[in-house]
């Protein structure tokens, strides 16, 4: 490990799916690191590869070819046997999803489901596992945990179900929590509660968190560092303050400009981004954002030619790289 507090280091991660219409490279050459006690926000729209990335880190892709390196706490995970991975999932890393109802088993009580998790990973007895399940439910703020442990998933509201998922994910005290759009299906007041819960547990346990979301507001609230994805690649990475104050990539800038904001009283039309997100089936040879890039509107022909033919690499200052041939640093387009 390079830095003592780096828990996860991903390098050159590529995930390819074979489809009837040809191979689709859903994630292409992705790299990032997550430190203990910190949150990495991965932002992107649908099809940007953010969820595929999280499943690849967990080793949950069957039928896709995954290459690159995923180092968790000094241990290489890619190429690890399924049995080995199973030992790490849960105890070292855990994941929560957008829709808790479809990730919970409808037939079993939530207590049984959390307890089973514990028994599988620690070999603890039924009684001890049950006690741990009740503890875990209490920890995530579910009132009357002993009684609620005997309820089935459908008896919980959306926010409470997500708390159950978090309880299950944390029951085996993992070091890394991957949260894939954990609050997207929830109401905004409930979202605030769940984000607060994750932040509290993170602080208590020095948990490393990967927060995957399409919502830049959520990222601004919880992340320490942010990775912006577009068309399966990282387009920009920076600490949260830099990213929002001085975005270097035209996509990040355009996205921030296009958002209606609660703290904005203006009435001018929103600065919309033209076009739609790219198709991964027919990737462009050059920059995936080029067709929508406002920086290229009216630009010189040679600039166009370069962006359209040459793929930009994630490059630039170590703390704030951007995959753009003409990034903006300190307000200046290079």
């Amino acid at each position: 490990m390079n830095a003592p507090d780096t828990l996860l280091r991903v390098q050159d991660l590529t995930v390819t799916f074979a489809t009837p219409r040809g191979p689709v490279r859903a994630v292409d050459g992705l790299g990032f690191a997550v430190r203990r006690g910190e949150t990495l926000g991965i932002v992107g729209e649908s099809g940007s590869g953010k969820s595929v990335t999280s499943l690849a880190v967990m080793g949950l892709h069957t039928g896709a070819s995954v290459s690159g390196s995923v180092m968790l706490d000094g241990r290489e995970l890619t190429g690890l046997a399924e049995r080995e991975l199973n030992r790490l999932r849960g105890r070292k890393m855990a994941m929560i999803f957008q829709d808790p109802l479809s990730s919970l088993h409808p037939y079993y009580t939530v207590g049984e489901q959390i307890a089973e998790h514990h028994r599988v990973h620690y070999g603890s007895g039924r009684r001890a596992a049950r006690a741990r399940a009740v503890e875990a439910l209490a920890e995530v703020g579910i009132p009357e945990p002993r009684r609620r442990a005997r309820d089935h998933p459908h008896q919980f509201s959306g926010g409470m179900r997500q708390r159950v998922m978090i309880a299950m994910a944390l029951a085996c005290e993992p070091d890394l929590l991957i949260a894939d759009e954990p609050t997207t299906a929830l109401d905004v007041t409930v979202q605030a509660q769940i984000l607060e819960l994750i932040a509290r547990i993170q602080e208590e346990r020095q948990l490393a968190v990967i927060m995957i979301t399409h919502d830049l507001g959520v990222v601004a609230r919880v992340a320490h560092e942010v990775l912006v994805m577009y068309g399966g690649r990282a387009v920009e990475r920076a600490d949260v303050d830099t990213l929002f104050a001085a975005p270097a990539h035209p996509y990040t800038r355009a996205l921030l400009d296009s958002l209606p904001r609660l703290d904005d009283d203006g009435d001018e039309p929103l600065r919309a981004i033209t076009g739609s997100p790219p198709s991964l089936l027919t990737p462009a040879p050059g920059c995936a954002f080029a067709p929508r890039c406002s920086q290229l509107a009216g630009a010189a022909a040679e600039k166009w030619a370069r962006c359209e033919s040459e793929r930009p690499l994630l490059d630039g200052p170590a703390g704030h790289p951007a995959a753009c041939h003409f990034p903006t640093y300190e307000g200046v387009i290079s």
């Binding site: 507001g217 601004a220 609230r221 992340a223 929002f244 104050a245 958002l259 609660l262 703290d263």
Partner: peptide
Amino acid sequence: RALLSAVPVPDPAVE
């Protein structure tokens, strides 16, 4: 008030 205060604003300093 609760609803408005829960909406995330895409600005870490404001948040």
